[in-house]
Amino acid sequence: MKKLIAAALILISLKSFAQQTEQDAIKQTINTMFTAMRKGDSTMLRSTFAKGIAFHSVANKKDGSTELEIENPDDFVKMVGTPHKGVYDERITFGDIKIDGPLASVWAPYKFYLDDKYSHCGVDVFQLMKTKDGWKIIYIVDTRRKDNCPE
């Protein structure tokens, strides 16, 4: 009986370790995306995206309604890679990371700065897919606001 309990504990520990390793790999992909933004490196940025990636924003309109804005990922890559004033510095905090086989979901509150000047905040939600080349971002949706920011 003791051997059975010990074996079960080992299996649980191995599963927990594997889950943590996957979470670290997912975080690395997302952190690489933000490093690319800070550096203005479109090649590095694109390396974190899967083919067919989708971008959306949940926007609050002045009349109080909400709409879904569809954004073009190629325009985003071009914007990041085109020389510009200031550093795009998005600072996130990793919240929940959920994994089911080759699919992962990440909730990440953020604050965005241009250089050191605060611009806006919100939440990024990432969907990632595990590929033969590692975790790739397949979908990003975010919210944006100027106040009531996460700490």
Rank of each mutant, 00 (worst) to 15 (best):
T131N: 05
L128G: 00
H84Q: 06
K27S: 12
D63L: 08
R145W: 01
A8R: 10
F126A: 02
A59D: 12
L11P: 09
N60S: 12
E22Y: 02
G40N: 04
G95R: 08
P150A: 10
A59T: 14
G86N: 02
R38W: 13
L4D: 09
S65R: 08
K98F: 09
K62F: 01
V80Y: 07
A104K: 05
I10F: 15
G134N: 03
V106Y: 02
A25E: 12
I26C: 05
R91W: 08
E69L: 10
T35C: 00
S105L: 04
A36S: 11
A7H: 03
A36E: 05
T131Y: 13
T131G: 11
D63E: 06
H120V: 03
R38M: 07
C121P: 03
C149W: 00
I30P: 10
K146R: 06
A8V: 07
K117Y: 02
N60P: 00
A36K: 07
N72Q: 12
H56A: 15
S57K: 07
Q28R: 09
A25H: 10
D74S: 11
P83S: 13
C149S: 04
K132G: 14
A18P: 09
K27P: 06
A54M: 14
D75Q: 14
I30L: 04
D133C: 03
P150F: 14
L68D: 00
I138Q: 10
M33T: 11
T82G: 01
I26V: 05
G81E: 03
S105D: 00
Q20L: 04
S42T: 09
A50N: 15
A36D: 11
K111A: 08
A104H: 08
A6N: 06
L114I: 01
P102N: 15
L11C: 13
D100K: 14
P109H: 02
I53T: 05
T82V: 10
K132A: 09
D24F: 06
N148S: 07
V80L: 07
T131F: 02
H56D: 10
I12V: 11
I30Q: 06
I97M: 03
H120D: 04
K2M: 09
D63A: 14
L128E: 11
I140L: 15
P73K: 07
K130N: 15
R145Q: 12
K51Y: 05
S119E: 01
F112Y: 07
D74E: 15
I12K: 08
L114T: 03
H84D: 01
K3P: 00
V106M: 02
S119L: 05
F34K: 06
P102M: 02
F112L: 06
D116G: 08
A50P: 06
M79G: 01
V87L: 08
V87E: 13
Q19K: 12
I97E: 02
G52R: 09
S13H: 12
A8H: 05
I97V: 12
D24W: 08
R91K: 15
D124G: 04
D124Q: 06
D24Y: 03
D89V: 01
S16Q: 14
T29Y: 07
K111D: 03
V77W: 01
Y139D: 13
S57L: 14
M79Y: 13
F94K: 14
M33D: 10
F49P: 10
L4I: 13
K61D: 10
W107L: 11
Q23F: 10
I99S: 08
F76A: 09
A25K: 12
H120C: 04
R144V: 02
I26Y: 03
W107M: 08
D96A: 12
K2W: 10
C121I: 01
A59G: 00
K146M: 04
